[in-house]
């Protein structure tokens, strides 16, 4: 073939161009439709819950305990506080080991232990949450002979752990190696470079992962049925205040509340939705909205904090 040979000779270029453009249009419309299908459920659920729950939402819900069945009014303060306490303790149990393990994976990515760790966290995140709940029942509830917020927090921590671990690993991997080396070259020990340079540099991603884990744990119902059980008539924060007042000790207060069967928002939602009383079903819708607001407000708080931090550190 010499340089003058026209490789396009004999082809109807105009027709081929037209065909290419037509296929392009069709594929583009298909992807647009698919995108629409992906976002419809999100907006549908959100709007539906806002409309249904919003009409039953009132201040009582946030400041009162439940009233007797079949009566109007009352609130779900016990569940809001229960969710807050159990999510808090689940985070305390899950975040430190998840971050430490993520650092292990970062520094020893290809050891047999690292591969085993990755494999088992993937398995763990695939275990149905009700099975995790059953596990909590077997190893904590049975042993202690009573349901408790502690058991609830532990199973929620188990559910959060793989989410935080894997996202933290990915985020830490994105931190340039030069930053870690920069600190080490100054004579920093590895742990200090991890804590003061690498982790802060990855903070945005790591916090996002933690928020995902918290959202996941805050929405779990099944594992709590076996562990925290539920507790209708108990205002946790007041209980903490009183304990501190009389026994003088925050540790003592938390020890006591961790021992109690405790309610949580998704648990309350699940129970109320099955009640024959229309007031309860209406409250269930409101609780659904409160649960969404609970996760949303945590997320917004985290974003605000990150944005402020970003301005300071990255200018």
């Amino acid at each position: 073939m010499n340089a003058e040979t026209n490789i396009f000779a004999g082809l109807d270029m105009a027709r081929l161009d037209k065909r290419r453009r037509r296929i392009n249009r069709i594929m583009l419309s298909l992807t647009a439709v698919a995108t629409l299908f992906a976002v419809i459920p999100l907006f549908w659920i959100t709007i539906y819950v806002i409309i249904k729950g919003g009409s039953y939402l009132n201040l009582d819900l946030f400041i009162h305990l439940p009233q007797a069945m079949g009566t109007e009014g009352g609130g779900v303060l016990h569940a809001i506080e229960g969710s807050a306490v159990m999510v808090l303790f689940a985070s305390i149990f899950a975040i430190p080991p998840a971050l430490l393990a993520a650092f292990y994976l970062l520094h020893h990515p290809n050891t047999p232990l690292a591969n085993f760790l990755r494999f088992s966290t993937d398995l763990l995140s695939g275990i149905p949450s009700i099975v995790v709940g059953l596990f909590g029942y077997a190893v904590i509830v049975i042993v202690q002979k009573h349901y408790s917020a502690l058991a609830g927090s532990v199973v929620l921590a188990i559910i959060m752990l793989p989410v935080i671990l894997r996202s933290a690993e990915e985020m830490l991997k994105l931190v340039p190696q030069e930053l870690r080396e920069g600190a080490l070259a100054l004579g920093s020990p590895e742990w200090k470079s991890a804590l003061t340079v690498v982790l802060p540099a990855a903070a945005e991603g790591v916090v996002t992962g933690i928020m995902l884990g918290i959202a996941r744990a805050a929405g779990e119902t099944a594992p709590l049925i076996f562990t925290a059980l539920g507790n209708d008539n108990y205002e946790i924060f007041q209980y903490i205040r009183q304990t501190i007042q009389y026994r003088q000790g925050v540790g003592e207060a938390f020890k006591l509340i961790l021992e109690q069967p405790t309610d949580a928002l998704p648990l309350t939602l699940w129970k109320y939705a099955q009640q024959p009383y229309p007031e309860r079903v209406q409250q269930a819708w409101a609780v659904a909205l409160v649960l969404m607001l609970f996760v949303l407000s945590l997320n917004i708080a985290a974003r605000l904090w990150l944005a402020k931090r970003r301005r300071q550190r990255y200018g």
């Binding site: 930053l179 100054l186 300071q312």
Partner: peptide
């Protein structure tokens, strides 16, 4: 002691790698 070696032998890298913190804290880090 590796830490002592690295304090006595400093290093500047190919790409500037300031830590994500203030100018002051960068210098005060060591």
């Amino acid at each position: 002691d590796v830490v002592d070696i690295r304090r006595r032998i400093g290093m500047v890298f190919q790409r500037p790698n300031p830590f994500p913190m203030s100018i002051y804290n960068n210098v005060a880090y060591g």
